[in-house]
Write a protein that binds this DNA or RNA. Structure first.
Lengths: 195, 195
DNA sequence: GTCTATATGCTGATAGAC
DNA sequence: GTCTATCAGCATATAGAC
Protein backbone atom coordinates (compact mmCIF):
# COMPACT_ATOMS: atom_id res chain seq x y z
CA UNK A 1 0.00 0.00 0.00
CA UNK A 2 2.94 2.30 -0.59
CA UNK A 3 1.27 3.82 -3.61
CA UNK A 4 -1.19 6.68 -3.29
CA UNK A 5 -4.77 6.22 -4.42
CA UNK A 6 -5.15 7.39 -8.01
CA UNK A 7 -1.48 6.97 -8.86
CA UNK A 8 -1.14 4.85 -11.96
CA UNK A 9 1.74 6.32 -13.92
CA UNK A 10 3.01 2.96 -15.13
CA UNK A 11 -0.25 1.92 -16.70
CA UNK A 12 -1.75 5.25 -17.69
CA UNK A 13 1.10 6.06 -20.10
CA UNK A 14 0.65 2.95 -22.26
CA UNK A 15 -3.11 3.25 -22.09
CA UNK A 16 -2.88 6.80 -23.43
CA UNK A 17 -0.74 5.62 -26.33
CA UNK A 18 -3.11 2.74 -27.06
CA UNK A 19 -6.16 4.99 -27.03
CA UNK A 20 -4.46 7.64 -29.18
CA UNK A 21 -3.32 5.01 -31.67
CA UNK A 22 -6.80 3.61 -32.05
CA UNK A 23 -8.55 6.98 -32.23
CA UNK A 24 -6.02 8.52 -34.62
CA UNK A 25 -6.31 5.51 -36.91
CA UNK A 26 -10.10 5.53 -36.94
CA UNK A 27 -10.87 9.24 -37.10
CA UNK A 28 -7.61 10.92 -38.04
CA UNK A 29 -5.20 12.97 -35.96
CA UNK A 30 -6.81 16.33 -36.70
CA UNK A 31 -10.32 15.07 -35.95
CA UNK A 32 -9.45 13.60 -32.54
CA UNK A 33 -9.39 15.85 -29.47
CA UNK A 34 -7.29 15.41 -26.38
CA UNK A 35 -10.58 15.20 -24.48
CA UNK A 36 -11.59 12.14 -26.50
CA UNK A 37 -8.31 10.43 -25.77
CA UNK A 38 -8.61 11.22 -22.08
CA UNK A 39 -12.21 9.96 -21.99
CA UNK A 40 -11.12 6.69 -23.59
CA UNK A 41 -8.48 6.22 -20.91
CA UNK A 42 -10.76 7.34 -18.11
CA UNK A 43 -8.88 10.45 -16.99
CA UNK A 44 -9.39 14.17 -17.48
CA UNK A 45 -7.79 15.97 -20.39
CA UNK A 46 -5.29 17.82 -18.23
CA UNK A 47 -3.82 14.56 -16.98
CA UNK A 48 -2.57 13.68 -20.47
CA UNK A 49 0.01 16.43 -20.26
CA UNK A 50 1.82 14.52 -17.55
CA UNK A 51 2.73 11.98 -20.22
CA UNK A 52 3.21 14.02 -23.36
CA UNK A 53 4.22 17.66 -23.82
CA UNK A 54 1.59 18.12 -26.51
CA UNK A 55 -0.61 16.39 -29.07
CA UNK A 56 1.98 16.61 -31.85
CA UNK A 57 4.62 14.79 -29.80
CA UNK A 58 2.09 12.10 -28.98
CA UNK A 59 1.56 11.48 -32.70
CA UNK A 60 5.26 11.58 -33.46
CA UNK A 61 6.15 9.10 -30.75
CA UNK A 62 3.53 6.66 -32.01
CA UNK A 63 4.94 6.83 -35.53
CA UNK A 64 8.56 6.71 -34.48
CA UNK A 65 7.86 3.75 -32.21
CA UNK A 66 6.12 1.90 -35.01
CA UNK A 67 8.90 2.45 -37.54
CA UNK A 68 11.62 1.47 -35.10
CA UNK A 69 9.73 -1.66 -34.15
CA UNK A 70 9.36 -2.49 -37.85
CA UNK A 71 13.09 -2.15 -38.48
CA UNK A 72 14.05 -4.09 -35.37
CA UNK A 73 11.61 -6.90 -36.16
CA UNK A 74 12.97 -7.24 -39.69
CA UNK A 75 16.56 -7.31 -38.45
CA UNK A 76 15.58 -10.13 -36.10
CA UNK A 77 13.98 -12.14 -38.90
CA UNK A 78 16.11 -11.62 -42.00
CA UNK A 79 17.90 -14.65 -43.25
CA UNK A 80 21.11 -14.78 -45.24
CA UNK A 81 20.81 -17.65 -47.69
CA UNK A 82 20.61 -15.87 -51.03
CA UNK A 83 18.51 -13.05 -52.52
CA UNK A 84 15.53 -15.24 -53.38
CA UNK A 85 15.16 -16.64 -49.89
CA UNK A 86 15.61 -13.14 -48.50
CA UNK A 87 12.90 -11.80 -50.77
CA UNK A 88 10.50 -14.48 -49.61
CA UNK A 89 11.39 -13.75 -45.99
CA UNK A 90 10.80 -10.04 -46.59
CA UNK A 91 7.44 -10.50 -48.31
CA UNK A 92 6.13 -12.85 -45.65
CA UNK A 93 7.50 -10.73 -42.80
CA UNK A 94 6.01 -7.55 -44.25
CA UNK A 95 2.55 -9.03 -44.59
CA UNK A 96 2.59 -10.61 -41.16
CA UNK A 97 3.93 -7.52 -39.39
CA UNK A 98 1.45 -5.22 -41.10
CA UNK A 99 -1.58 -7.45 -40.55
CA UNK A 100 -0.67 -7.60 -36.85
CA UNK A 101 -0.90 -3.81 -36.34
CA UNK A 102 -3.33 -2.30 -38.81
CA UNK A 103 -3.88 0.85 -36.73
CA UNK A 104 -0.20 1.72 -36.44
CA UNK A 105 0.34 1.03 -40.15
CA UNK A 106 -2.60 3.21 -41.07
CA UNK A 107 -1.26 6.09 -39.00
CA UNK A 108 2.27 5.70 -40.32
CA UNK A 109 1.00 6.19 -43.87
CA UNK A 110 -1.86 8.64 -43.39
CA UNK A 111 -0.65 11.07 -40.78
CA UNK A 112 2.72 11.98 -42.25
CA UNK A 113 1.34 15.31 -43.36
CA UNK A 114 0.38 16.19 -39.80
CA UNK A 115 3.95 15.90 -38.56
CA UNK A 116 5.99 19.03 -38.05
CA UNK A 117 8.89 19.23 -40.51
CA UNK A 118 11.55 18.00 -38.10
CA UNK A 119 9.42 15.08 -36.95
CA UNK A 120 8.49 14.30 -40.54
CA UNK A 121 12.14 14.10 -41.51
CA UNK A 122 12.90 11.64 -38.73
CA UNK A 123 10.03 9.33 -39.59
CA UNK A 124 10.87 9.53 -43.29
CA UNK A 125 14.46 8.53 -42.58
CA UNK A 126 13.23 5.41 -40.82
CA UNK A 127 10.92 4.55 -43.69
CA UNK A 128 13.74 5.05 -46.15
CA UNK A 129 15.93 2.70 -44.15
CA UNK A 130 13.25 0.03 -44.37
CA UNK A 131 12.82 0.50 -48.11
CA UNK A 132 16.59 0.25 -48.50
CA UNK A 133 16.46 -3.22 -47.00
CA UNK A 134 14.22 -4.44 -49.81
CA UNK A 135 16.13 -2.53 -52.46
CA UNK A 136 19.37 -4.18 -51.38
CA UNK A 137 17.79 -7.60 -51.81
CA UNK A 138 16.57 -6.71 -55.30
CA UNK A 139 19.98 -5.34 -56.26
CA UNK A 140 21.67 -8.51 -55.07
CA UNK A 141 19.13 -10.60 -56.93
CA UNK A 142 19.66 -8.64 -60.14
CA UNK A 143 23.44 -8.84 -59.79
CA UNK A 144 23.25 -12.60 -59.26
CA UNK A 145 20.90 -12.78 -62.26
CA UNK A 146 18.23 -14.65 -60.32
CA UNK A 147 15.88 -11.66 -60.72
CA UNK A 148 15.02 -9.37 -63.62
CA UNK A 149 14.60 -5.87 -62.22
CA UNK A 150 15.15 -3.00 -64.68
CA UNK A 151 14.92 -0.37 -61.92
CA UNK A 152 15.43 -1.43 -58.32
CA UNK A 153 14.00 1.75 -56.79
CA UNK A 154 10.78 1.51 -58.79
CA UNK A 155 10.47 -2.19 -58.03
CA UNK A 156 11.00 -1.51 -54.33
CA UNK A 157 8.20 1.03 -54.23
CA UNK A 158 5.90 -1.15 -56.32
CA UNK A 159 6.39 -4.24 -54.17
CA UNK A 160 6.02 -2.43 -50.86
CA UNK A 161 2.82 -0.77 -52.09
CA UNK A 162 1.46 -4.10 -53.23
CA UNK A 163 2.30 -5.85 -49.95
CA UNK A 164 1.08 -3.06 -47.70
CA UNK A 165 -2.19 -3.01 -49.63
CA UNK A 166 -3.15 -6.25 -47.89
CA UNK A 167 -4.26 -4.13 -44.95
CA UNK A 168 -6.99 -2.44 -46.98
CA UNK A 169 -8.95 -5.59 -47.61
CA UNK A 170 -7.85 -8.49 -45.37
CA UNK A 171 -10.21 -9.29 -42.51
CA UNK A 172 -9.45 -11.83 -39.81
CA UNK A 173 -11.62 -14.89 -40.11
CA UNK A 174 -12.45 -14.13 -43.72
CA UNK A 175 -12.32 -16.27 -46.82
CA UNK A 176 -8.53 -16.68 -46.90
CA UNK A 177 -6.14 -17.79 -44.18
CA UNK A 178 -3.05 -15.75 -43.45
CA UNK A 179 -0.81 -18.50 -44.71
CA UNK A 180 -2.70 -18.64 -48.00
CA UNK A 181 -2.58 -14.85 -48.35
CA UNK A 182 1.16 -14.89 -47.65
CA UNK A 183 1.74 -17.61 -50.21
CA UNK A 184 -0.27 -15.96 -52.98
CA UNK A 185 1.40 -12.59 -52.41
CA UNK A 186 4.81 -14.21 -52.33
CA UNK A 187 4.10 -15.91 -55.65
CA UNK A 188 3.06 -12.59 -57.19
CA UNK A 189 6.18 -10.89 -55.83
CA UNK A 190 8.40 -13.69 -57.10
CA UNK A 191 6.92 -13.57 -60.57
CA UNK A 192 6.87 -9.76 -60.65
CA UNK A 193 10.65 -9.66 -60.30
CA UNK A 194 11.05 -12.37 -62.91
CA UNK A 195 12.34 -15.02 -60.52
CA UNK B 1 -23.61 44.64 -68.54
CA UNK B 2 -26.60 42.71 -67.36
CA UNK B 3 -24.57 41.20 -64.55
CA UNK B 4 -24.05 42.96 -61.26
CA UNK B 5 -20.58 43.92 -60.10
CA UNK B 6 -19.14 41.21 -57.92
CA UNK B 7 -21.24 38.46 -59.46
CA UNK B 8 -19.04 35.55 -60.45
CA UNK B 9 -21.07 32.45 -59.81
CA UNK B 10 -19.79 30.62 -62.86
CA UNK B 11 -16.14 30.91 -61.89
CA UNK B 12 -16.35 31.01 -58.10
CA UNK B 13 -17.89 27.55 -57.88
CA UNK B 14 -15.06 25.75 -59.67
CA UNK B 15 -12.47 27.84 -57.87
CA UNK B 16 -13.92 26.76 -54.54
CA UNK B 17 -13.72 23.12 -55.57
CA UNK B 18 -10.15 23.56 -56.82
CA UNK B 19 -9.05 25.24 -53.62
CA UNK B 20 -10.80 22.68 -51.43
CA UNK B 21 -9.27 19.82 -53.41
CA UNK B 22 -5.77 21.17 -53.01
CA UNK B 23 -6.14 22.10 -49.34
CA UNK B 24 -7.85 18.83 -48.36
CA UNK B 25 -5.12 16.86 -50.14
CA UNK B 26 -2.28 18.74 -48.50
CA UNK B 27 -3.55 19.23 -44.97
CA UNK B 28 -6.48 16.83 -44.63
CA UNK B 29 -10.20 17.50 -44.50
CA UNK B 30 -10.43 17.87 -40.73
CA UNK B 31 -7.46 20.23 -40.56
CA UNK B 32 -8.76 22.65 -43.19
CA UNK B 33 -11.25 25.35 -42.22
CA UNK B 34 -13.89 26.93 -44.41
CA UNK B 35 -12.10 30.23 -43.79
CA UNK B 36 -8.90 28.85 -45.32
CA UNK B 37 -10.75 27.71 -48.42
CA UNK B 38 -12.46 31.09 -48.74
CA UNK B 39 -9.15 32.93 -48.34
CA UNK B 40 -7.60 30.81 -51.09
CA UNK B 41 -10.46 31.76 -53.44
CA UNK B 42 -10.47 35.38 -52.36
CA UNK B 43 -13.93 35.55 -50.84
CA UNK B 44 -15.28 35.60 -47.29
CA UNK B 45 -16.24 32.38 -45.55
CA UNK B 46 -19.95 33.08 -45.69
CA UNK B 47 -19.88 33.22 -49.48
CA UNK B 48 -18.94 29.54 -49.67
CA UNK B 49 -22.38 28.57 -48.49
CA UNK B 50 -23.87 29.86 -51.73
CA UNK B 51 -22.12 26.96 -53.46
CA UNK B 52 -22.25 24.12 -50.96
CA UNK B 53 -24.72 23.43 -48.15
CA UNK B 54 -21.87 22.45 -45.83
CA UNK B 55 -18.27 21.26 -45.60
CA UNK B 56 -19.19 17.59 -45.67
CA UNK B 57 -21.06 17.91 -48.97
CA UNK B 58 -18.11 19.77 -50.45
CA UNK B 59 -15.85 16.80 -49.63
CA UNK B 60 -18.36 14.25 -50.86
CA UNK B 61 -18.87 16.01 -54.21
CA UNK B 62 -15.12 16.11 -54.78
CA UNK B 63 -14.81 12.39 -54.16
CA UNK B 64 -17.91 11.42 -56.12
CA UNK B 65 -16.78 13.57 -59.06
CA UNK B 66 -13.36 11.94 -59.03
CA UNK B 67 -14.67 8.39 -58.95
CA UNK B 68 -17.22 9.03 -61.69
CA UNK B 69 -14.58 10.62 -63.85
CA UNK B 70 -12.35 7.59 -63.28
CA UNK B 71 -15.05 5.16 -64.35
CA UNK B 72 -16.06 7.23 -67.38
CA UNK B 73 -12.46 7.64 -68.51
CA UNK B 74 -11.85 3.89 -68.28
CA UNK B 75 -15.02 3.10 -70.23
CA UNK B 76 -13.79 5.47 -72.95
CA UNK B 77 -10.38 3.78 -73.13
CA UNK B 78 -10.97 0.06 -72.64
CA UNK B 79 -10.23 -2.11 -75.60
CA UNK B 80 -11.74 -5.47 -76.42
CA UNK B 81 -9.05 -7.59 -78.02
CA UNK B 82 -8.40 -10.26 -75.39
CA UNK B 83 -7.68 -10.30 -71.65
CA UNK B 84 -3.97 -9.62 -72.01
CA UNK B 85 -4.42 -6.51 -74.14
CA UNK B 86 -7.14 -5.36 -71.75
CA UNK B 87 -4.86 -5.85 -68.78
CA UNK B 88 -2.15 -3.76 -70.41
CA UNK B 89 -4.70 -1.06 -71.27
CA UNK B 90 -5.92 -1.07 -67.67
CA UNK B 91 -2.44 -0.86 -66.14
CA UNK B 92 -1.35 1.98 -68.40
CA UNK B 93 -4.65 3.83 -68.03
CA UNK B 94 -4.59 3.53 -64.25
CA UNK B 95 -1.08 4.93 -63.97
CA UNK B 96 -1.73 7.77 -66.38
CA UNK B 97 -5.05 8.77 -64.83
CA UNK B 98 -3.67 8.70 -61.30
CA UNK B 99 -0.49 10.60 -62.11
CA UNK B 100 -2.61 13.30 -63.74
CA UNK B 101 -4.61 14.06 -60.57
CA UNK B 102 -2.55 13.28 -57.49
CA UNK B 103 -4.60 15.53 -55.21
CA UNK B 104 -7.95 13.94 -56.11
CA UNK B 105 -6.45 10.45 -55.79
CA UNK B 106 -5.01 11.27 -52.40
CA UNK B 107 -8.35 12.52 -51.13
CA UNK B 108 -10.25 9.56 -52.57
CA UNK B 109 -8.08 7.19 -50.51
CA UNK B 110 -7.42 9.20 -47.37
CA UNK B 111 -10.66 10.97 -46.59
CA UNK B 112 -13.04 8.03 -46.79
CA UNK B 113 -13.28 7.96 -43.02
CA UNK B 114 -14.47 11.56 -42.96
CA UNK B 115 -17.52 10.79 -45.07
CA UNK B 116 -20.88 10.37 -43.40
CA UNK B 117 -22.14 6.78 -43.70
CA UNK B 118 -24.48 7.41 -46.62
CA UNK B 119 -21.85 9.32 -48.59
CA UNK B 120 -19.27 6.67 -47.75
CA UNK B 121 -21.50 3.95 -49.15
CA UNK B 122 -21.96 5.81 -52.42
CA UNK B 123 -18.24 6.42 -52.93
CA UNK B 124 -17.44 2.84 -51.98
CA UNK B 125 -19.91 1.55 -54.56
CA UNK B 126 -18.09 3.51 -57.25
CA UNK B 127 -14.73 2.18 -56.13
CA UNK B 128 -16.08 -1.35 -56.12
CA UNK B 129 -17.33 -0.88 -59.67
CA UNK B 130 -13.86 0.15 -60.76
CA UNK B 131 -12.23 -2.81 -59.02
CA UNK B 132 -14.77 -5.09 -60.69
CA UNK B 133 -13.50 -3.93 -64.09
CA UNK B 134 -10.03 -5.27 -63.31
CA UNK B 135 -11.33 -8.42 -61.66
CA UNK B 136 -13.36 -9.26 -64.76
CA UNK B 137 -10.23 -8.99 -66.89
CA UNK B 138 -8.34 -11.32 -64.55
CA UNK B 139 -11.20 -13.81 -64.50
CA UNK B 140 -11.33 -13.83 -68.30
CA UNK B 141 -7.57 -14.25 -68.45
CA UNK B 142 -7.65 -17.15 -66.01
CA UNK B 143 -10.53 -18.81 -67.86
CA UNK B 144 -8.68 -18.47 -71.16
CA UNK B 145 -5.57 -19.85 -69.42
CA UNK B 146 -3.42 -16.91 -70.48
CA UNK B 147 -3.02 -15.89 -66.83
CA UNK B 148 -2.35 -17.81 -63.63
CA UNK B 149 -4.41 -16.19 -60.88
CA UNK B 150 -5.28 -18.42 -57.92
CA UNK B 151 -7.61 -15.78 -56.40
CA UNK B 152 -8.94 -13.01 -58.63
CA UNK B 153 -10.13 -10.79 -55.78
CA UNK B 154 -6.77 -10.87 -54.03
CA UNK B 155 -4.95 -10.27 -57.30
CA UNK B 156 -7.24 -7.34 -58.08
CA UNK B 157 -6.49 -5.66 -54.77
CA UNK B 158 -2.76 -6.39 -55.04
CA UNK B 159 -2.43 -4.99 -58.55
CA UNK B 160 -4.46 -1.85 -57.85
CA UNK B 161 -2.41 -1.17 -54.72
CA UNK B 162 0.80 -1.64 -56.67
CA UNK B 163 -0.28 0.64 -59.50
CA UNK B 164 -1.75 3.35 -57.30
CA UNK B 165 1.48 3.38 -55.32
CA UNK B 166 3.15 5.18 -58.20
CA UNK B 167 1.67 8.39 -56.83
CA UNK B 168 3.68 8.13 -53.62
CA UNK B 169 7.04 8.42 -55.30
CA UNK B 170 6.78 9.62 -58.92
CA UNK B 171 7.78 13.22 -59.50
CA UNK B 172 7.38 15.02 -62.82
CA UNK B 173 10.71 15.71 -64.45
CA UNK B 174 12.45 13.08 -62.35
CA UNK B 175 14.72 10.23 -63.30
CA UNK B 176 12.13 8.19 -65.19
CA UNK B 177 9.77 9.24 -67.97
CA UNK B 178 6.10 8.40 -67.72
CA UNK B 179 6.35 6.01 -70.63
CA UNK B 180 9.20 4.17 -68.96
CA UNK B 181 7.31 4.01 -65.68
CA UNK B 182 4.23 2.68 -67.47
CA UNK B 183 6.26 0.06 -69.27
CA UNK B 184 8.07 -1.19 -66.16
CA UNK B 185 4.87 -1.39 -64.14
CA UNK B 186 3.11 -3.16 -66.98
CA UNK B 187 5.89 -5.74 -67.12
CA UNK B 188 5.61 -6.34 -63.37
CA UNK B 189 1.83 -6.67 -63.65
CA UNK B 190 2.12 -9.05 -66.57
CA UNK B 191 4.60 -11.25 -64.78
CA UNK B 192 2.72 -11.09 -61.48
CA UNK B 193 -0.32 -12.73 -63.07
CA UNK B 194 1.87 -15.33 -64.76
CA UNK B 195 1.27 -14.09 -68.30
C1' DG C 1 -1.22 11.79 -10.29
C1' DT C 2 -5.49 13.46 -11.12
C1' DC C 3 -8.89 16.75 -10.66
C1' DT C 4 -11.61 21.23 -11.73
C1' DA C 5 -11.56 25.56 -13.72
C1' DT C 6 -10.10 28.53 -17.08
C1' DA C 7 -7.38 31.35 -20.81
C1' DT C 8 -7.31 32.18 -25.45
C1' DG C 9 -8.45 31.25 -29.87
C1' DC C 10 -10.55 29.01 -33.81
C1' DT C 11 -14.56 26.33 -35.70
C1' DG C 12 -18.95 25.75 -38.89
C1' DA C 13 -22.71 28.03 -39.96
C1' DT C 14 -26.24 31.94 -40.21
C1' DA C 15 -28.46 36.86 -40.50
C1' DG C 16 -28.92 40.86 -42.64
C1' DA C 17 -26.73 45.11 -45.05
C1' DC C 18 -25.46 46.42 -49.63
C1' DG D 1 -23.22 37.44 -54.96
C1' DT D 2 -20.50 39.04 -51.49
C1' DC D 3 -19.77 41.36 -47.40
C1' DT D 4 -19.52 42.15 -42.13
C1' DA D 5 -20.85 40.69 -37.78
C1' DT D 6 -22.02 37.23 -34.82
C1' DC D 7 -23.56 32.87 -32.32
C1' DA D 8 -22.63 28.85 -29.82
C1' DG D 9 -19.44 25.39 -29.27
C1' DC D 10 -15.17 23.05 -28.99
C1' DA D 11 -10.04 23.13 -29.42
C1' DT D 12 -5.21 22.93 -26.94
C1' DA D 13 -2.91 23.87 -23.14
C1' DT D 14 -2.11 25.63 -18.34
C1' DA D 15 -2.82 26.81 -13.12
C1' DG D 16 -3.67 25.50 -8.84
C1' DA D 17 -6.48 22.61 -5.39
C1' DC D 18 -6.26 18.12 -3.30
Amino acid sequence: MARKTGSHSQITGPRIRDAALRLFAWHGYAAVSMRQIAAEVGVQAGALYLYTPDKQTLLFELMRGHMEELLAAWQAVRKGDGPLAQLEAFARFHIRFHLDRPDAVFIAYMELRNLQPENFARVEALRRAYEDELEAILRDGAAAEVMRVPDTKLATMALIAMLTGVNTWYREGGRLSRERVERIYWNMVRRAVGA
